[in-house]
Amino acid sequence: MGKPPHSDSPFPLPTHHFQTMSQPLHRVIQQTEQVIVGKPMQIRYALACLLARGHLLIEDLPGVGKTTLAHVLARSLGLQFQRIQFTSDLLPADILGVSVYQRDTADFKFHPGPIFAQMILADEVNRATPKAQSALLEAMEEQQVTIEGVTRALPVPFFVIATQNPSHQIGTFPLPESQLDRFLMRIQLGYPDAQAERGLLSGVDRRELVARLRPQMELSELLALQKRVQEVYVSEPLLDYVQAILKHTRESANYEHGLSPRAGLALLAAARAWALLDGRDAVIPEDVQAVLPGVASHRLQKTQDSQPSHDDTLARELITAVAIP
């Protein structure tokens, strides 16, 4: 991920606070930043996604720290963590679980799969077959799974971070557009800058660092924050702005299809979480602009004749094209 669109406001924002950010949240961010160096925006995106009860898709090359980010967040938030490595021979049962016959009690006993955890890292999700992918994606959508006719609720919170190699690599099943829509945001991590990389290379092994991390937040606090996100206020002028953005994507010849109403809802949800992260109780246009690259880029497709561009430039074009009403 390159520079955020309002890159003139470096984090943490010194002036924006109407209320101070919740202390535990602040500590989570701090702790994560110690391990994931030089990626403050991405950490916030991930958190915003979690707070908005959405799911996150990270698309990048192997080895840039996707897995570590998920690990660190899970530990800092004190969530049960499961990692599912997606491979081409992965079956839905490997994700959801399976009932096994017990000889002594003479009936079937359900062995829950790795999906029954609060935070799932679905690693390289595009390596698996569409069948396995859809098992995960359905669970994400419905917050519950039905196995052998029995519906089982997933834990709360339930947060999926899926990672995906850029789809032009061989032997992958890229997620179709409709499935991409289930992720609230898609972000890229990108290479660290020189200074951060230096620290990474010279410092302690990341795995050790992760092992040392302590949870900074109670589960109840996290759930309360999720609830507060939904209560963040959205004013009429802000809705005008979001609608102007949606309208622009539908009328401009630059995009294949405009953003759907569901995309508009996702944009608002993410912007609410962003406002909360920023310590505000109302969404302002800057919040919408901040989350727009993550929310819009995987839902918009450029038309053939417009120049192909990076996710970020696409969002920047969109932001600069729409005036704030």
């Binding site: 309002h6 003139d8 406001s9 002036t15 924006h16 302002i284 246009p285 800057e286 602009q289 932001i319 600069t320 094209a321 729409v322 005036a323 704030i324």
Partner: peptide, 16 residues
């Protein structure tokens, strides 16, 4: 102020 520029962003930019 650019038409798409939010008030806080603008204030910050002008401030610098």
């Amino acid at each position: 102020r650019a038409a798409h520029e939010g008030a806080l962003d603008y204030a910050q930019r002008v401030g610098s």
